[in-house]
Design a binder for these strands. Structure first.
Length: 565
DNA sequence: CATGATAGCGCG
DNA sequence: AAAGCGCGCTATCATG
């Protein structure tokens, strides 16, 4: 375990498997990388916040095999319905703090004094860490199935390591390819900072078609008024609604919106700000989403347009291993519900084709709409119409999500497969519900309460599936990382130097997005990496669902860039 | 000038 | 205009 002493030095405490304190050692922060590197590769480090400890180690070229991130574990355990003894965790409020990102502390994005006082990190003292670990051990032990929470906390902690490593290594990004793509689509970059030629041309065509030379296309109210004057009676200016009208302005306007979006979200300004030395280094935020999915902060890492994936390019002599899971969430649902009919439909690459073969619906498109509607709680439209047919064919799977929705509507909490629990409803929600059950409640009160109850039901319905899919993905990542670490470093000084001292000679995860992984690997290891990605996926399925026969097929390829072939 | 809300669109 | 979940980011516009 790592923590600080009162004088700001670093204390290393060796703990037995039962959590007993065996030996202490105190070192200066500068000595820590060497001390950590000297431990066995599979040593488990316990620390308050991976983001506060690990970036400095990585910068020194030192990696760790395993860890317990006390902050992330605390958040899981104090909220988990599986934990029957959580009062101690609930009173340890100081562990509810926001993450610290030490990687940005060193840069020019240093948090201001205001940030630091408003968002303190978790305690960094050794005594606080020891006490928190003891609380967590007790909390896990109180669960009926401690193994699930153990697995979840371990996977979450491994994810924290990987998030820090992703930032340290970065995603290989070819700025020249990106620039060429921007110039092809938008026109040359204007020197003065104005609009590139093709964007300006699209804007001119729109103004022409509107007969409104002065309208600002980036102002929604102005554009809406101008559309109305031109006879296009839309209620919003969104792509979806515009596409349903026929008018000379529609085509150029949709074109303009597409180009303007590319320019503002991922144009040259983005390239200048986010790509350095051939790497895109966003901040990943493990468990940044209530369901346990990761969030990101800065650079929009989780929204990279597919159009730009060709700019993701391996270094010379390296390859990208690009993998994503086909229809992860419905597969997870089938396994959670032990729905063998749905698992049968999921056998093989295309779950939607399997749903058609089951006879539930007629076409693949219908299958997709029905399945998504089931996961999200659709009630109207084509999706709402198709969901009941799924309910007949896959009653167990549908019963699981229907029950989760009913619990949520009723104000209860639901949990993922491994035990992450949804937030309790807020005071506003509860007040709305109790007002509606009052004797003098108005019809307005009642309909508002019903609406908000259904909203919450859709959230809890999706929570169990999205959250369990996130758990599967964490296990996949962790298993892959372990396999990559077993591969020998490539010889020679050359390599992916921009990936930093810890990753210049070994295959490493370079990108992760819910159900998709990109590994940057020396060419000679690429085949083994691809095998490791597949093996880790199979292992993740077994870890969560044991022998239940559910496939998690991957789209897997080895390439020089991450663009769709 | 800063902050917050809204619209819109990108990703899964 | 999303029907139907979860996000982050940019631009605009109203408010302080």
């Amino acid at each position: 375990m790592l923590g600080h002493t009162d004088t700001g030095r670093v204390m290393i405490v060796d703990l037995s498997a039962e959590g007993e304190r065996l030996a202490d050692q105190v070192v200066d922060a500068g000595e820590l990388p060497a001390v950590v590197a000297a431990r066995a590769a599979d040593h488990r480090w316990v620390w308050g916040d991976t983001g506060a400890w690990y970036p400095a180690l990585l910068a020194a070229g030192v990696r760790v095999g395993r860890c317990r991130d006390l902050r992330l574990a605390h958040a899981i355990l104090r909220g988990s319905a599986a934990v029957t003894e959580s009062s101690a965790l609930r009173t340890a409020r100081e562990w509810d703090a926001a993450p610290v990102d030490a990687a940005t502390d060193a840069g020019d994005d240093r948090p201001t004094l205001f940030d630091l006082t408003e968002r303190p990190g978790v305690p960094d003292g050794i005594d606080a860490a020891l006490a928190e670990l003891a609380r967590q051990r007790a909390a896990i032990a109180s669960a009926r199935e401690p193994g699930r929470l153990e697995l979840l906390v371990a996977a979450e902690s491994a994810g924290a390591l990987i998030a820090a490593e992703l930032r340290a290594a970065g995603l290989p990004w070819d700025a020249a390819v990106h620039d060429r793509l921007l110039r092809d689509v938008l026109g040359d970059r204007p020197a003065g900072g104005g609009q590139p030629a093709l964007l300006a041309a699209a804007a001119a065509r729109v103004r022409d078609a509107l007969g409104d030379p002065a309208v600002s296309l980036d102002s929604q109210p102005q554009l809406l008024r101008s559309l109305h004057r031109a006879g296009v009676l839309v209620r919003s200016t969104s792509r979806w609604e515009l596409a349903e009208h026929t008018h000379p302005v529609i085509e150029p306007l949709l074109e303009y919106k597409k180009l303007a979006r590319l320019m503002s979200a991922n144009g040259w300004a983005w390239l200048d700000e986010w790509v350095r030395d051939g790497r895109f280094r966003p901040v990943y935020v493990p468990a940044g989403v209530v369901t346990g999915r990761w969030a990101s902060s800065g650079g929009g890492a989780l929204q990279l347009p597919r159009l730009l994936r060709t700019a993701v390019r391996a270094d010379p002599g390296w390859r990208l291993v690009v993998a994503d899971v086909a229809q992860l969430e419905p597969r997870v649902l089938a396994a959670m519900a032990r729905d063998t009919a749905m698992a049968e439909a999921a056998r093989g690459r295309d779950l939607y084709a399997g749903v058609v073969a089951s006879g539930a619906v007629a076409t693949r498109d219908e299958a997709k709409i029905a399945v998504l509607g089931a996961l999200y709680g659709a009630t109207t439209g084509e999706s709402g119409r198709l969901v009941p047919r799924l309910r007949r064919t896959f009653p167990r799977a549908m019963a699981l999500v229907d029950a989760a929705a009913a619990t949520g509507e009723d104000g209860g909490v639901v949990s993922t497969w491994l035990g992450r629990t949804s937030p309790r409803p807020g005071t506003g929600w509860r007040e709305t519900q109790s007002r509606a059950s009052d004797a003098e409640a108005s019809e307005e009160d009642e309909s508002r309460a019903r609406r908000r109850a259904r909203d919450r039901g859709r959230f809890t319905r999706n929570f169990v599936v999205q959250g369990t899919a996130a758990e599967w993905a964490l296990c996949w990542l962790a298993g892959l990382r372990r396999r990559l670490d077993a591969m020998p470093p490539v010889a020679g000084a050359a390599g992916a130097r921009a990936s930093g001292p810890a990753f210049a000679r070994i295959p490493h995860v370079a990108f992760f997005l819910h159900d998709e992984i990109i590994v940057h690997s020396p060419s000679e290891h690429a085949d083994s990496v691809a095998q490791a990605v597949a093996d880790a996926a199979a292992e993740a399925g077994r870890l969560l669902f044991g022998d239940f026969p559910i496939d998690f097929p991957l789209d897997l390829r080895i390439a020089e860039d991450a663009g769709k072939p």
